[in-house]
Computed example of a mutant assay.
Amino acid sequence: MRRNFEQKLNYSQIKDVDFRVSCINTEEFNGYVHLASIHKVSEAIFRSVDDKRIKIMDNEYKWLQITPLNANYNLITILDDEDQILQWEFHIIENNEADGKMSLMFEDLILSLLVLPNGIKKILGEEEIKKALYNNDINLCQYDKAYREIKILDQIVSIEKLITLSRGMLNNILGDCKPKNKLRCEA
């Protein structure tokens, strides 16, 4: 199982990026929102989905990561240089832990649900999770949990809800002018 941290973009093509982080604790949402504003890259990065190539990183793109506490997923919304949503990707996670410094660590259960604005949904990581189970990197309970969470998300996710959530969180974090070190969240 991989342990990942929010706020990290490990792409050598990134030449200039800044991060914003906010913790939101309301009736509607309790969790972390991270925004990576990618100002400059040495070359664009693409993802192939079936027979389509989707640009996922270029100059002035944004990656918005939404991680509700006490949930088994985090969501990355990728926006282009005109703030048009290009895709959403739900990463299934075992759990998440706040470190008290506005970053969040989580255990990645490998499976992801990719959702495109035209409604296409695709499960990613199926070969990798099978290999992880075979190699005892994850156990059968974690394997089953990952597939169970993917099925739930696949049934309840709608484009309208994703747009509303992503736009609301983007507006929230862009409107948040507090210094990073003064933000706090109840976990």
Rank of each mutant, 00 (worst) to 15 (best):
D51P: 02
S37C: 14
I156G: 14
T164K: 14
N74T: 07
G119E: 06
Q65N: 15
I14G: 01
W88R: 12
K145Q: 12
I138V: 11
E89P: 06
M57A: 11
M105H: 11
N70M: 09
E127D: 08
L183C: 06
E43G: 11
K145D: 05
N10H: 09
K145R: 10
N59I: 14
I138F: 02
S103C: 06
K52C: 04
E128D: 08
K151S: 10
L113A: 04
F90I: 03
R20E: 15
S48F: 04
W63N: 05
S22K: 01
S12P: 00
I45F: 07
T67I: 12
L69V: 09
V17P: 02
S22R: 00
Q65L: 14
K161R: 10
K15W: 02
L116R: 01
L165A: 06
T67Q: 14
R3M: 04
E186R: 14
Q142A: 08
L114K: 14
E128V: 08
N70S: 10
D50C: 13
E6V: 12
R3A: 03
N172S: 15
A146T: 03
L183G: 01
I138S: 03
N139F: 07
Y147V: 03
S12E: 12
N30A: 12
I66V: 15
K151I: 02
R20G: 09
A146Q: 10
E97K: 07
A132Q: 09
D58R: 06
V17M: 12
V21P: 05
E60L: 10
N139C: 10
K8D: 10
L104A: 02
K145V: 02
I120Q: 10
Q84C: 09
Q84M: 12
R20K: 15
I138G: 00
T26L: 08
Y134E: 13
S166N: 00
C177D: 13
L133H: 10
D176P: 04
N4I: 06
K130S: 04
Q7I: 11
A36W: 01
I129W: 01
K101Y: 14
E127M: 05
A36D: 03
L114C: 14
I123Q: 03
K131S: 10
L174S: 01
V17Q: 06
